[in-house]
């Protein structure tokens, strides 16, 4: 093995002096074991194509055919739809386009609030638990509980807590804190409050991830930097602003992107919290697509909306990375 590998290397310094045929003969011969990386990566590539790429391509194809209930038993019979599914989804003057736009805007607001607040909570938690004190491990574990609980169990518990007459939240607000009148308790899962409810639950589910990532990031900042800045008279907030945040830059970049994608696509939270019928104020886009198309067997239209969502997220991600990379190069 070592001998065969050495051969091309030994040959390479000489090509200028030798005949033309010489070096090409050497170059054509591949090193033994060249196939190994390909073999190692092949299963991953095959399954990636099977599990991710193929369904995605099928989804894109579906968006261009009239795949309604009349054809789902025999897809190949579905007539081509051209761009009509996209036209339906993007026509904001039509009922379907208008409701999709409304759902999109609600999801944007939802994502900004959830990602922002989760990041703040995660950062606060990570910084506070950076100093060692008695019971730190307990807090670290406690903060990760929402992330460890099965999604369904966690959200169904919130659903019970948000009930108007029997829920813990109204009981706490009205009967313990007397913040609201006990005779006129608010609804949380219907009407306008539903948005607040779904935001609260999503933050509860998302922030432990921010906490975990930022805590890991903080471990890599050397203690000496803080000590040096303390000698120069920097207070904790200044230290956080000038040392912690910049040094967590790479972590934050990935963290915000991932949280954005997860939150924007969140299906479980509204589905479990609201059941089959989402209130208009909590009409998040993944669930909207599901109920506007899959429930009524109009897969073509649903796929068109999914593809539009895909394009939007690609655009946001691309722009985000482009801007951040340019900034870090300029810095």
């Amino acid at each position: 093995m070592a001998v065969t590998e050495a051969r091309p290397r030994a040959g390479s310094p000489s090509p200028q002096t030798g005949t033309k045929a010489g070096p090409t003969r050497f170059r054509r011969k591949k090193p033994a074991g060249w196939w190994l990386p390909f073999v190692l990566i092949a299963p991953a590539v095959v399954f990636e194509i099977l599990i991710h790429v193929t369904p995605m391509l099928v989804g894109i194809w579906m968006s261009f055919i009239k795949l309604t209930k009349f054809f789902i038993a025999n897809w190949s019979a579905a007539p081509a739809a051209g761009l009509s599914n996209y036209h339906l989804a993007l026509d904001v003057n039509g009922a379907l386009g208008a409701s999709l736009l409304n759902s999109f805007l609600i999801t944007c607001a939802f994502t900004i609030i959830v990602v922002g607040v989760s990041w703040l909570f995660g950062m606060a938690g990570a910084v506070v638990l950076q100093r060692s004190f008695r019971g730190r491990a307990l807090f670290r574990t406690l903060f990760l509980v929402p992330y460890a609980i099965p999604v369904y169990a966690g959200i169904i518990a919130w659903k019970f807590m948000f009930q108007r007459d029997t829920g813990a939240i109204n009981h706490f607000l009205a009967d313990n804190l007397h913040l609201i009148s006990a005779t006129d308790k608010p609804f949380w899962l219907i009407g306008d409050n539903a948005f607040t409810a779904v935001v609260v639950v999503a933050i509860w589910r998302t922030w432990p991830f921010a906490f975990l990532m930022l805590m890991a990031g903080l471990q890599s900042i050397p203690e000496e930097v803080y000590e040096a800045s303390a000698v120069d008279g920097a207070r904790p907030f200044r230290q956080w602003r000038s040392i912690t945040v910049p040094m967590l830059g790479p972590v934050n970049r990935v963290l915000v992107l991932v949280m954005f994608l997860w939150t924007f696509n969140d299906f479980n939270t509204p589905y479990i919290l609201f059941g089959g019928a989402q209130p208009p104020s909590g009409d998040l886009i993944s669930f909207h697509i599901y109920s506007a198309s899959f429930l009524t067997l109009n897969f073509g239209f649903g796929s068109a909306m999914s593809v539009l969502l895909l394009l939007f997220l690609l655009l946001v991600t691309g722009t985000y990375l482009f801007i951040l990379n340019r900034r870090s190069r300029n810095a």
Partner: peptide
């Protein structure tokens, strides 16, 4: 990143 987005999105597309 594009791959990540695609992977996440597939969850929606694959519903059907």
């Amino acid at each position: 990143a594009v791959a990540t987005v695609a992977a996440v999105l597939v969850a929606t597309a694959a519903c059907s």
